[in-house]
């Protein structure tokens, strides 16, 4: 506990691959928020993370480099939550597929500016779900909009994924 994120990546995990730069990571599994570069040296324990507005979660760290599209990554994660929702309560059962649809459209060049506000409102409302599954599941989307909103805008303006040259 308390080991710095940078140390975990560089020392214990063998460092970034050649040519890859740290862009963000999920510090503790799919239900935690993206941790952008500014937290690269954060001490990985519950208290420090909580103070920084993040969660240590499961401690399963997933690192993304600068060539990775975080909209696509979030879409992938949301796909998972949409599939795994038990279906008991409305926000989770219907909210995740709805957000998956919006993220898919953004990623595939069909995004519209108002999608961003719908996404952010829906994330807030999914906190009113029956259990803690949905509040965890929206964490990647919330942090995508908080730290990487420009990337989302770029998708919408260019009507395509900027990481995909084709």
């Amino acid at each position: 506990m308390g080991v710095r994120l940078s140390e975990i990546i560089e020392v214990h995990a063998g460092g970034m691959r050649d040519g890859a730069e740290f862009k963000a990571c999920l510090p503790g599994g799919a239900s935690t928020a993206f941790l952008p570069g500014e937290f690269y040296d954060i001490e990985m324990d519950f208290e420090t993370m909580r103070k920084a507005g993040h969660r240590l979660g499961t401690g399963a760290i997933m690192v993304f480099d600068q060539k990775t599209c975080l909209v696509a990554a979030t879409l992938n994660l949301t796909e998972f939550f949409a599939r795994e929702s038990c279906g008991w309560c409305t926000p989770c059962r219907e909210g995740f597929p709805y957000m998956r649809d919006l993220l898919w459209r953004i990623e595939h060049g069909q995004g519209q500016e108002e999608f961003i506000s719908i996404l952010s409102q829906m994330c807030r409302h999914l906190w009113n779900s029956y259990c803690a599954f949905a509040p965890g599941g929206v964490a990647p989307i919330e942090s995508l909009l908080a730290y990487f909103e420009d990337e989302v805008h770029a998708h919408i303006e260019k009507k395509k994924c900027p990481f995909n040259d084709k």
Partner: peptide, 12 residues
């Protein structure tokens, strides 16, 4: 606003 969303979700 939340209740409006619930209706929207159900009507999807």
């Amino acid at each position: 606003d939340f209740r409006k969303y619930v209706i929207e979700w159900l009507m999807l």
